[in-house]
Amino acid sequence: MKLSELIDKIDAVVIAGDDKLDLDIERIGASDMMSDILAANLGTNSMLLTGLTNVQSIKTAVIAGVEAILFVRNKRPPQAVIDTANSHGIPLLTCPYSMFVTSGRLYAQGFTGLNGLR
């Protein structure tokens, strides 16, 4: 599903990378623990769902090859973090729901975990 379409399912807004909404997302990992994302057997077309808004969430995405980040509970990272995301071409979104509800809504849309399993 394209990022632009995914946004509608969870009432998200774009914080950074509004030129990247054509990105196709298939797999999603939800965690505030970055080592869990780094340990995941992750494929391409993946997104990180997290409440962690510091710069390490962006660096984890870059290192692990995660292509987009969605923050829950309307969280917004500080500007320096947004700048880092822009410099690495990682789009950032935020949505009003909790991690649990956001995960449920996206699962219902057919997304898989980072390892491709449901």
Binding site: M33, M34, S35, D36, N54, Q56
Partner: peptide
């Protein structure tokens, strides 16, 4: 831990 690390996964991840 607030950085999303420190759960005792780093060294095992590196070994794997």
């Amino acid at each position: 831990r607030e950085m999303g690390f420190g759960a005792g996964m780093g060294l095992p991840n590196m070994e794997t």
